[in-house]
């Protein structure tokens, strides 16, 4: 099993792209909330990516990726339809428990919009009233709006600059939803840690069960290295085998964010070296320049932040 062919690709913006990879067996096994570990080439690193969608009939797995580090930028350039990934293993992690809650709020921020989709669909299929709150930085970054409209009863779209949907942070969208519905039983939030933290804080006063999907640095994804350990309440959990979903009111997000920084310098070095090589081998054309300009991940801005699921360029 070493041929993981890319059968479709879609570019949502100059930094966000979708890959549909052929893996019939995984498409059959995948459940909402699970993730894969991808290796683009033999020298590559193993990066965890949350499964954004799976199609059991077509036998494909869909990944939505944001170009933030060396590996994700290289994949953006090289992963074209017809090429193959060197490795893809999964589905990993404990599937999200799709409870029997009658009214559910599914919150996706930035790239977290992708992995929240299978959950929203799962809840809809189990008969819940599903309200989706999706947040993007601006209108150009919006994707899958229609896909969500099809499976959700209500959709609240927010952008930071108001260029699409309501103007405001994602937490403003949550407040609107909570104000409109007194009987929301469960909230599921996926996005950058700082956004998930804000969501957990927003729902805490209401005591609504809030699940989040954490995205720490991983190597193997099978529980073997312990790199992905997170503090949940008084316990230390491994996100890859004990998660990746945890109770958002118990997760220590500050610890999680700090641990995501741990290979920052190496990541920078790898990226600089790679861009240098690209400049030398390819004349700057459309694409390369944009990528480099668009990609610095600032941990400060909620919606600017990369991927909820990917981003562990460290691991």
């Amino acid at each position: 099993m070493s041929n993981f062919e890319i059968v479709a690709r879609e570019d949502f913006s100059d930094v966000t792209y979708l890959l549909e990879v052929r893996h019939p067996m995984m498409a059959r096994a995948a459940k909402p909330g699970q993730f894969v570990i991808v290796m683009q080439n033999e020298q590559g690193e193993r990066i965890p990516l949350t499964i954004a969608d799976f199609d059991r009939n077509k036998g494909t797995i869909t990944l939505v990726i944001q170009a933030v580090g060396k590996t994700t930028r290289q994949m953006q350039q090289e992963c074209q339809v017809g090429t193959s990934l060197y490795g893809m293993v999964g589905p990993m992690g404990i599937p999200s428990p799709i409870s029997h809650a009658k009214k559910v709020l599914c919150v996706g921020g930035g790239l977290g919009v992708a992995p929240i989709f299978p959950q929203a669909r799962g809840f809809k299929e189990s008969g819940a009233y599903v309200i989706a709150v999706l947040g993007f930085r601006n209108k150009d970054l919006v994707f899958w709006e229609n896909k969500f409209r099809e499976c959700c009863d209500e959709l609240i779209l927010c952008t930071n600059d108001g260029s699409a949907g309501m103007k405001g942070m994602i937490t403003d969208g949550i407040k609107v939803a909570l104000a409109g519905h007194a009987n929301i039983e469960e909230v599921v939030a996926i996005g950058p840690p700082v956004m998930m933290k804000a969501c957990a804080d927003a729902t805490r006063p209401y005591k609504i069960k809030t699940m989040v999907s954490v995205n720490p640095i991983m190597v193997d994804g099978t529980g073997m290295c312990g790199g992905c350990r997170v503090k949940v309440g008084d316990e230390v959990k491994f996100a890859c085998v004990d998660g990746p979903d945890f109770d958002g009111h118990l997760v220590d997000f500050d610890d999680l964010m700090l641990r995501l920084q741990r290979h920052k310098n190496d990541e920078k070095l790898a990226h600089e070296r790679w861009s240098e090589n690209c400049r030398m081998t390819n004349p700057p054309g459309p694409g390369a320049g944009d990528v480099l300009a668009g990609g610095t991940a600032a941990q400060s801005d909620v919606l600017e932040l990369p991927d909820p699921s990917e981003d562990a360029p460290g691991g």
């Binding site: 099993m1 070493s2 993981f4 067996m25 995984m26 096994a29 699970q34 490795g87 893809m88 293993v89 999964g90 589905p91 990993m92 992690g93 994804g221 099978t222």
Partner: peptide, 11 residues
Amino acid sequence: FECNTLVGRLF
């Protein structure tokens, strides 16, 4: 030998 196969989760 079949690599990239997480038994338990894939099947």
